[in-house]
């Protein structure tokens, strides 16, 4: 183990020196002694970025030992864990969840508020751990999937992450927006009826 005393050193010296030592001394533990908790936290960030094993010993309020060690096996362990979570997410989504958007507004009341809320809802969907399987858009709802819509980027994100987006063809035609479809596919009433019949869960915000 290599010990470096970084007490009374201004930031960023403790992290810069520790980083240098870690790079120059592979397979060795580096113990950095610092005099405040903020320096400890900065060293922990360094350790995390360099995939180190991190141990912190508080000797006193003015003395902390931070031991960093690059363990070559630790990376593999992390990636196994990530795989596990992904697998679980997939199992959960085996059910068929469909979000139905049938107007430009969320709820009834003020039109501007309704539009803002619906936009917020589509964005909130992107933040969920488990994304819906389908988003069906019909009647006024097709205004969300056309070019220039402020919801377009979020729908594109959802599609890129596995949600299927389908807009009603007759509705796009009625609003003269068929050429402007910006995301997903055009669907028909038969397909809509079939999807809704088979859905295990239908969400209508």
């Amino acid at each position: 183990m290599i010990k470096i005393d970084m007490r009374n050193k201004q930031c960023p010296l403790p992290v810069i020196e520790t980083k240098k030592m870690l790079k120059e001394n592979l397979n060795q533990k580096i113990m950095t002694v610092v005099d405040n908790i903020i320096a400890v936290e900065n060293l922990q960030k360094l350790g995390k970025q360099m995939s180190c094993e991190i141990t912190v010993n508080e000797i006193s309020k003015n003395e902390y030992e931070v031991i960093l060690f690059i363990n070559e096996n630790s990376n593999d362990q992390n990636s196994v864990e990530i795989k596990d979570t992904k697998q679980k997410n997939k199992e959960n989504t085996e059910q068929n969840t469909i979000v139905v958007i049938s107007s430009e507004m969320m709820g009834s009341g003020d039109e501007l508020l309704g539009k803002t809320l619906l936009k917020g809802y589509i964005y909130a969907l992107t933040q969920l751990d488990v994304l819906p399987d389908y988003i069906l858009l019909y009647n006024g709802g097709v205004h969300l999937s056309i070019n220039g819509a402020d919801t377009l980027q979020d729908l594109i994100y959802l599609q890129a992450n596995g949600t299927k987006i389908a807009s009603c063809g007759a509705c796009l035609d009625y609003y003269n927006q068929t050429k402007n479809l910006g995301v997903g596919e055009i669907t028909n009433m038969y397909a809509i009826a079939e999807l809704l019949s088979k859905a295990t869960r239908i969400i209508k915000p």
Binding site: C11, P12, V15, I16, I38, E41, N42, K45, L46, Q127
Partner: peptide, 23 residues
């Protein structure tokens, strides 16, 4: 990236805490 960062930034990080989510 090279860790030319300050203690003050870490204090700010602690202050903001879990009011921020990064993606």
């Amino acid at each position: 990236e090279e860790f030319y960062i300050t203690g003050a930034a870490q204090k700010n990080r602690n202050f903001v805490g879990d009011n921020v989510r990064f993606k």
